[in-house]
Amino acid sequence: MSQMQEELRQKAKELLEKGEVRYIIGWGKGRFHHRPPIFIYQAEDVDKLVWDEYCVANLGKYLLDDKFPEGKIGICVRGCDSRAVVRLVQDKQVKREDVCLIGLPCTGKVDQEGRELVKCRDCMHRNPPVYDIVLGEPVEEKGNPDRFKRVEELEKLSSDEKYEYWSNVFDKCIRCYACRNVCPACNCRECFVDQYRVGWQGKQKNCMQNQIFGLTRAYHIADRCIECGECERVCPVGLPLMELNRKLIKDLNSLFGPYEAGVNPDVKPPLGEYRLEDPEEYM
């Protein structure tokens, strides 16, 4: 790990000194175990960059804070960050030529107690699928056959049991919209929840309104979710949001063929296209 960190700092220094990037987005030291994002502009600051098992946050979304950059942005990408950037490029929010992706193969991150994070346990792409530079050696992919296990368990419940389960989940939601704010697929200029004039969503905080929000949020990102698990990680009340996202991903795959968002920049999201031979259930 520390050797990679050294390599990263070296590379960052080189990029900054040569002027190939204007600044680099990476992880830095926080007050606790947590590694907050850091923006390095000067070559002499590269030692502030950290690469260890606590570099948890997805960095992709920080690109949206500088959509019209003066010069290239260097950004450290693990598999999930790389997919986030690909999605943002596909959504035309970030120009591919504006970013330099510094790939970092990742073996998973841990929490305070050293336990592997849930989002990393279910990871499908530990190596960045798209990058400009890659550091270190590629790591072995886990393949992850159990990714949909929890979804399958929930599918087995009866209608009422399912509803009860989700009611209990959404009862706790405080509608802070942290899940939306952190999500690299949520890049609308004005989210539907904020459009009070159209009134997609009521302002009240009750279970039903929370549910409408939760369902709509998941459906909106159905074919764009890169499974980085950030929504679930940042949820202050610990809602199992990936169980919703994964259900949609599972169905998209079984209905319209294999698809993983943000892996191949040339593959379009399946809800933006159709095939004549799509499943027919509505005769």
Binding site: S159, K162, P270
Partner: peptide, 17 residues
């Protein structure tokens, strides 16, 4: 067809018959 094949399954998953 694509949108509602997905939506129908999603609603079912959330307990809507």
């Amino acid at each position: 067809r694509r949108r509602f094949l997905l939506m129908q399954r999603f609603l079912e998953y959330n307990g809507i018959d």
